[in-house]
Write a protein that binds this DNA or RNA. Structure first.
Lengths: 218, 218
DNA sequence: GTTGATAATAAGGTCAGCCATAATATTATT
DNA sequence: AATAATATTATGGCTGACCTTATTATCAAC
């Protein structure tokens, strides 16, 4: 593998792309939004990544990871999610905060540390947010589910994963018991892409569609 | 406490100062050397730190940490050394590498994580390099020892700590069994500040004076 | 096909932390 | 007191990743 030192920013872009879409191109604007930068800045950065061969940007069509980029992104996700496991299972850090904390640690983690951590944790398959942890070779089984926002009204589904990254969003979902493993009944969907009414753990909660998109269910 | 976000660079400078001297001013050139930057760059940075009230720089006299700077440095050292414990005791990372790896992690560690880590590790008092781990309030008992380079010929001492930070230096010392807890006999000191001849674990080793300065013994 | 929204590009600016080179200041030594 | 060695300051430059404010392309919808 090529072990050139990648900047923290590069890692964040690749990770965001991997999280936003397994394969289809992502609009630069969406990327900018998730990373909290202006579309112009994201565009610049995407150019740089394109030149490095990490992404392929087709103007007006979106950005996608190249093979090389996807490999690196897998590696970043592996580190990220292993740390999430450690923080949650061993340090008892609050669920909503682990993404944020793991994210910082991830950038600072040498390969030796990553693998030693995997051994220590006994090679977990998923992180506390329900997402799969890529193997060392980059492989992992994608989640077999769909966003809660697309679930049928009246059905009862099981949350598989929560794909949000912002701590306040995670906190909001945690408070409403929308966590991996929980059963969720879709009681009602307001018209015109309005919020969903759900029943979770016996309680009714109302959830905006954009938040529901973060929740992967089956 | 003031929780302004300090840059990685700032943390490195404060840490280096804390490691180089508990109290007496340190020459800017020495600081530059340890941090691997040019004296001019170190000077600039020292100016910035002075303006922030973290150090006090008396031209031609040296730099020293202020109270505020020392507090932050303690915090940084705490994080650094807690990670060293984790990496060594739980991840079984090679002794010579833990400083380097812990250093990266340190910068990326939130206070909540630091304290959770301290609990997880059961509040260790020293790191694997033998250095004390500051308490949350910044207090710690300084090492009661002196550099090996100042030990008397013929005496037998015990290594308390190894203050080196560069991985290759640590590796060199590790290979010669110069590790915290080991007994060291000073067999001979070459004239004109030449190298020391030591007996460690039954074997004779020759050690340059500048390396011997890193080893704190009693 | 024209138009309005969205996407992309261009141009110029900021900031931290480094760099080199050159000019001064200070200290220490003779 | 002169000088050599060392410290400091001055100046100007670079880089990555961001920013704002135009301007120009393209797509999608009527």
């Amino acid at each position: 593998m090529n072990e050139k030192p990648l900047s923290e920013s590069t890692e964040m872009y690749l990770k965001a792309l991997a999280e936003l879409s397994a394969r289809e191109p992502v609009a630069v604007a969406r990327l900018a939004e998730r990373l909290g930068v202006t579309p112009v800045s994201a565009n610049e950065m995407v150019h740089r990544l394109d030149e490095q061969g990490l992404v392929s940007h087709k103007p007006y069509k979106g950005v996608a990871l190249t093979k090389k980029g996807r490999e690196i992104a897998s590696d970043v996700l592996r580190r990220q999610r292993l740390w999430e496991c450690f923080l949650f299972d061993h340090l008892n850090i609050e669920w909503a905060q682990i993404y944020e904390f793991a994210c910082s640690l991830e950038h600072a983690t040498a390969p030796e540390v990553t693998e030693a951590l995997a051994v220590f944790l006994n090679h977990p398959k998923t992180c506390p947010r329900g997402n799969p942890i890529p193997e060392q070779d980059g492989s992992f089984e994608p989640l077999n589910g769909a966003p809660l926002s697309e679930a049928e009204v009246g059905s009862v589904v099981t949350a598989l994963a929560v794909n949000a990254t912002a701590t306040d969003v995670l906190k909001y979902l945690q408070e409403r018991n929308i966590l991996p493993g929980r059963e969720i009944e879709i009681v009602e969907a307001a018209p015109m892409r309005g919020p969903l009414t759900l029943r979770v753990e016996g309680k009714e909660v109302v959830l905006g569609l954009s938040l529901a998109e973060f929740v992967i269910v089956k």
